[in-house]
């Protein structure tokens, strides 16, 4: 577990670290995440946990320990909360059920409605389900694509709290976000994208105080 969870050549994400991927619409954030996952071919090798995975299909990369929270949440409409979590877990049945119970306890919003079909959940509940789903194979690297979009401020705070806690337990987190201020509240470092290219990589604290950030991002 000493290998760096993610290394794409242009930037890395280390264990226990939250890296923000900043950029406006169409700056290329989703494209980066999908390249890391294997939905798109990569220009440079993608290295997960010290292994070059460029030739592996999406599902193999994911089961190595990558969790993905996609843009727009994409919950499985007809599955219940509990079914969604079970389907996303690759442990044997007893351990799986234990983990589902843990997850329902961790997210009280979901714990209150384990039998609800996903499409009947509110936006905030769906987002929590998407996060819990990504955590079900005990990932060591978590990729999130604008998870705060459309959520009430209180829910966003809860979400960011979860991310900080996960990173505190050693998880590597890559958080793609348009709203820089929000992401910089939890991130250790940030990568600023524009039109698919990396403009800048810097510690979060440095960027947060930088008055040119707004203009940098507006270029996208």
């Amino acid at each position: 577990m000493t290998a760096t969870p993610l290394d794409v050549g242009d930037f890395t994400v280390r264990a226990g670290e939250i890296v923000a991927l900043l950029g406006g619409n169409r700056a290329g954030k989703t494209r980066w995440l999908e390249t890391i996952l294997g939905f798109r071919p990569a220009q440079k090798p993608v290295v997960l946990f010290g292994q070059d995975v460029s030739h592996l299909p999406v599902e193999r990369r994911v089961t190595m320990g990558v969790g993905y929270v996609p843009a727009g949440r994409r919950v499985f409409a007809g599955l219940t909360v509990r079914e969604t979590l079970e389907a996303s877990c690759w442990l044997p049945a007893p351990a799986r059920r234990r983990l589902v119970d843990e997850m329902l306890a961790l997210f009280p919003m979901l714990g209150a409605r384990p039998q609800a079909r996903a499409w009947l959940l509110s936006g905030g509940q769906q987002q929590m389900l998407a996060l819990a789903r990504a955590l079900m194979n005990r990932p060591r690297l978590l990729l999130l694509d604008e998870p705060a979009l459309g959520l009430a401020p209180g829910v966003v705070d809860g979400l960011l709290g979860h991310l900080r806690e996960l990173a505190g337990n050693g998880m590597a987190v890559l958080l793609a976000e348009q709203r820089a201020g929000l992401a910089l509240r939890v991130a250790d470092r940030a990568v600023v994208l524009s039109r698919g290219r990396i403009l800048r990589t810097a510690p979060a604290a440095e960027l947060a105080g930088d008055p040119t950030l707004a203009d940098l991002m507006a270029e996208g």
Partner: peptide, 21 residues
């Protein structure tokens, strides 16, 4: 588990792959 995963694939093939199916 097999049935749940079949339903997940029917519901959203892209996302099903993204959870390792």
């Amino acid at each position: 588990q097999t049935g749940r995963r079949m339903r997940a694939v029917s519901s959203d093939r892209y996302m099903a792959r993204a959870i390792g199916i």
